[in-house]
Design a protein around this nucleic acid. Structure first.
Lengths: 350, 350
DNA sequence: CTGTTAGCGCATTCAC
DNA sequence: GTGAATGCGCTAACAG
């Protein structure tokens, strides 16, 4: 490996001068500067970031912990976070923890404080708050960048939140405003799980419209295409009088769309479908998905900003409560998967 | 930050003993071992990987360089590579180079040899072979893990290849075997670009079936959904007698599917569509996409294996030609987007 | 089995 | 403006 010493000799200066030139610190004469630059160029020398990180007590990168990289939301979020990091001249390392037996804490512990100066978490997975607290106590700032519950921030961990309940409410209100009365729900998490805020929004909108949200009209499932497909098939088979479906996330909603079609029904003529997130694929489905857009870009940017800020403050070991950053309200994106119910039948069967 | 010295004092031993216990090197008495383990547990100590990497002259991770993380192929490939790396007790760092002004070489240079012991490249982007060679000369092994041209490996860089021409041929033969004679092509790269092998396969199958592959029946476009949509719209508008479309990649093929539909035509009744890759979304489209599956998992695994092997051999600085690993033949996955042409019309219009 | 000495490649602090 | 000391946290090689 080429070291700074080699380049220094090649340029006829001391290592320190090379270092100063490369980092644009300290004052270096223009002539020396050029000499050094030429030597660097000629030798193809690259500073060893490991050594630099060791002595500077700061890593050169930020890390983004992902629970499931194949869920299209995460790559899209990652891209935005990458851009945000770049704007601050940081590189973002993406760590995918799918199927790590320990939920990713091992990966986290290795990366934290060594390879990375701070951790952004966008996990839909098994990582516990306690684990994150442990890492943070080790001196590496942690920010949860997609937190669903603005009113119940994670204890001791900084986060960026969006109003998931509002998202669920807006989606469902769109359906009730259209005149739907028999509205089922496909919730892509366990009951009381990560999508509980979205589900609460659904229930609150149902109540507001004086409609009953029956247990039988709700299915809980996993957050993927196939689970959405299966849940919708089961739900519509059991409750054929449903005229609309609220789905808690776009990815399973894409499955719902195909399930409705496979059942021989049409969207939106027979069944309207609305969901939440507005991933890229939502506009590419047939029919295009009406969905409630959540501020993905904003969360990525705010997450990076907050993390950088915590890194700055780290010396001070902030004693106060962990900061909570709220983001813009979700907004409805009306596309082609929703329409008024075909006939305003009296709520016949239950 | 907690150092090894702190733990050593806490356990009443020297740092060396702590190090030995943690890495299971050297012989340590069981009593001492327990003492150390307890001290580590109590203090929550984590070794600083930066320092360890510096002295061991080896980084703890592998890096995967991605050109475009939002293209669903890459997350799916990443997942497989992550698993492969885990099986070798390595962590995989994902580096997304989208929109890096320099095509990612800066990121690469930083990561290479510092944060990472070797680089896996799965780039559809701007990274040049020269850049990779430079990095490799710096002492960090590089493997291109998705190389399209088995007969023309990248000079000086190890790679894992698949037979892209066979893939293109198999896809097109499927169409000709079905009886199609007017087969257009949507190629998702510039002319002579990354999908040229696939395109060659199309042309060779057309020749073999004694069909003419007219320039006018081919469109070159970018490798994304919308470009596929636009290209198909233009192509089918200009050449309405086409009964089938060969698309060089699944992602634009999904766009093609919707474009056909938007034109008021039906797949496969009016137009058959076949493509290449078999990403997850190929089976989720309506109709499900007939496609030629390329050995994604195998490439990810072989890429990791090859990289690890090069890392082992690094001391020897292998002089021979860079290794080329060939993977299993692509295979046709017949789904619902292809069927015989509706009427076997004489090739009327040109 | 355990402790000691030395140094990985770099940047900080001060002389010159 | 540039050079010489010192040490980041850890482990290799050896001494005890």
């Amino acid at each position: 490996m080429l070291t700074i010493k080699d380049v220094a000799e090649l340029a006829g200066v001391t290592p320190m001068t090379v270092s100063n030139v490369l980092r644009e610190r300290g004052r270096v004469g223009e002539a020396t500067r050029q000499k050094v630059l030429r030597a660097v160029e000629a030798s193809g020398y690259r500073p060893n970031l490991t050594a630099r990180a060791l002595v500077e007590r700061r890593a050169p990168t930020l890390a983004l912990l992902l629970g499931c990289i194949t869920n299209p939301f995460y790559p899209q979020f990652t891209l935005k976070a990458t851009h945000a990091a770049r704007r601050h001249e940081r590189h973002l390392l993406v760590c995918n923890t799918d199927y790590e037996g320990d939920g990713g804490i091992g990966f986290l512990a290795e990366v934290a404080g060594s390879l990375s100066d701070g951790i952004l978490v966008a996990n839909n997975g098994a990582l516990s708050i306690e684990d994150l607290q442990t890492v943070q106590q080790g001196g590496t700032p942690v920010v949860i960048s997609v937190w669903e519950f603005p009113d119940a921030p994670p204890p001791g961990i900084a986060c960026v939140t969006f109003d998931s309940t509002a998202a669920g409410r807006i989606a469902t209100e769109h359906l009730t405003a259209l005149g739907h009365q028999r509205i089922g729900a496909v919730v892509a998490s366990e009951k009381g799980g990560i999508h509980n805020g979205r589900y609460d929004g659904y229930r609150s909108a149902m109540r507001a419209a004086h409609l009953r949200a029956l247990q039988a009209d709700v299915r809980f499932c996993s957050d993927d295409y196939q689970s959405g497909y299966d849940a919708a098939t089961a739900l519509l088979t059991a409750r054929p009088d449903l005229t609309a479906l609220f789905v808690s996330n776009d990815l399973p909603a894409l499955g719902v769309l195909n399930a409705v079609w496979a059942l021989g029904l049409r969207v939106p003529e027979d069944v309207s479908v609305v969901s939440i997130t507005d991933i890229e694929q939502a506009s590419q489905s047939r029919p295009a998905l009406t969905t409630v857009s959540i501020p993905t870009t904003e969360m990525a940017e705010q997450g990076v900003n907050l993390l950088l800020q915590l890194i700055e403050e780290r010396a001070g070991e902030q004693a106060g409560a962990a900061p909570v950053v709220h983001t813009s309200a979700p907004t409805l994106v009306t596309r082609a998967s929703t329409a008024p119910p075909r006939r305003q039948e009296p709520t016949s069967r239950t």
